[in-house]
């Protein structure tokens, strides 16, 4: 099986280049991460990428696979067009090979104050929440911060420091929708202005690539509705 992989090490390379690799024994059911590990272990130790859980829950091995962002560990190699072209996530600075600098992405995440705010005194036991209220968090809390969505979003590419991007906005929605949270007003107010939220042009790349099957566009639209209601 043939692979064409983006290489760049600022220590030695003037500019990035694509390198070809070939694996002869690709087992059935092999995931792309397995193939990359095999290349690293048996052909080229210098090939660099992040990885951890290997089962799609930690969000480490996000990359651009044949033009589409995804997690290597849950992408089967069997269905991929050859040579499989693998690049780092677009729109973020490359540190080395498939490893990007995620700081801007994390900064945007921190900007939405992604933590539960409760002003009232805490009860001795749990804060009550009905199953219906809890259901509203489904599709929001499962985000693994892999950045596949934000780095496939043209609005984020043009204004990564002004537009928060789908991942951060999904988190904003996760707390706006949480019946226990008491900072809804502040959260909505913080998203005012032309950029932070409203640069979403409903291109929906985020929905297409999310490896967890989440729908950031829907979350963003729900926030927009709440903001309209608030301004009336």
């Amino acid at each position: 099986m043939k692979f064409r992989i983006y290489r760049y090490n600022p220590d030695v390379d003037q500019k990035p280049y694509m390198q070809d690799y070939e694996l002869n024994d690709v087992e059935s059911g092999m995931m792309l991460l397995g193939a990359l590990l095999k290349i690293k272990d048996t052909i080229d130790e210098t090939l660099s990428f992040r990885r951890s859980c290997g089962e799609g829950v930690c969000g480490s091995d996000s990359m651009n696979i044949n033009g589409i962002n995804g997690l290597a560990c849950i992408t089967a190699v069997a269905g991929l067009k050859q040579p499989v072209e693998i690049r780092p996530l677009p729109g973020l600075p490359v540190i080395r090979d498939l490893i990007v600098d995620m700081e801007q992405f994390y900064q945007n995440y921190r900007d939405v104050k992604p933590y539960l705010v409760v002003d009232d005194p805490m009860p001795e036991a749990e804060l009550a929440q009905t199953p219906e209220q809890r259901d509203k968090l489904d599709g929001l809390y499962e985000c693994i911060l892999c950045a596949c969505c934000s780095t496939q979003c043209p609005s984020f590419w043009w204004n990564p420091d002004k537009y928060l991007g789908p991942a951060a906005l999904l988190q904003a929605s996760r707390f706006i929708e949480d019946s226990r949270d008491q900072a809804t007003e502040e959260r909505l107010a913080a998203l005012e202005g032309p950029f932070k939220l409203f640069r979403c042009h409903t291109i929906m790349n985020c929905v297409q690539v999310c490896p967890k099957g989440l729908n950031p566009t829907l979350a963003i639209n729900n926030i927009k509705k709440k903001m309209v209601k608030r301004s009336l």
Partner: peptide
Amino acid sequence: AVYELEHYGVPFSRMDNGSI
């Protein structure tokens, strides 16, 4: 320990009466 986590925002699944 569980109640503290819940207060930190952990989205536990719920019973009909709103408990964890």
